[in-house]
């Protein structure tokens, strides 16, 4: 295991992360984005866990080997990244839960969970908001015209 193969695991994690990131950016469906975000995060987890591996190591739980009374004395994989990733997994499921709750609320109020449609509705809302809030003095009239022109 030398050269490129030595860091093969790190590359796979990059690939996984990027699949997730691509999903987050490219997919207009909100659920898809939430799932892809999860993939993205697992990529990072994979990196951390890969970091913990040591040649010839075993799980970092002190133990006896299967067939003998003798203590098995190492080497053990590094437990620190495992601990960190336990925390990170919990965080990612929490984020997922909150995201799903938001998506359900969005579906209820917008009637869709496609990002582009929602965006269009939001833009329309925002424009209405803008127009409602406008002050019509002389100086703003000019701006109003510009704005109208811009949206036309």
């Amino acid at each position: 295991m030398t050269g490129a193969l030595g860091i093969y695991n790190y590359w796979i994690y990059v690939v996984l992360m990027m699949i997730g990131l691509y999903g987050v950016i490219a997919k207009p469906n909100l659920i898809k984005q939430a799932i892809a975000l999860g993939l993205f995060q697992t990529g990072i987890f994979l990196y951390y866990i890969s970091m913990a591996v040591i040649d010839g190591g075993t799980a970092p739980v002190w133990t006896t080997i299967l067939d003998g009374a003798q203590k098995y004395e190492g080497p053990y994989d590094n437990p620190l990244p495992h601990v960190l990733i336990l925390t990170a997994i919990v965080v990612s499921v929490s984020v997922l839960a909150v995201a799903l709750a938001l998506i359900i609320n969005i579906k209820r109020t917008y009637g869709t969970i496609e990002y582009d449609e929602i965006e269009a509705m939001d833009q329309a809302d925002k424009r209405a908001d803008y127009q409602r809030g406008q002050v019509t003095d002389a100086a703003d009239d000019v701006e109003h015209k510009l704005e109208g022109h811009h949206h036309a």
Binding site: T42, S50, A52, V53, D77, H82, L86, I89, V93
Partner: peptide
């Protein structure tokens, strides 16, 4: 990769 706790969590959670 010998990360039993993480694996456990991932299986249960994911």
């Amino acid at each position: 990769m010998h990360s039993m706790d993480v694996s456990f969590t991932e299986a249960a959670v994911g």
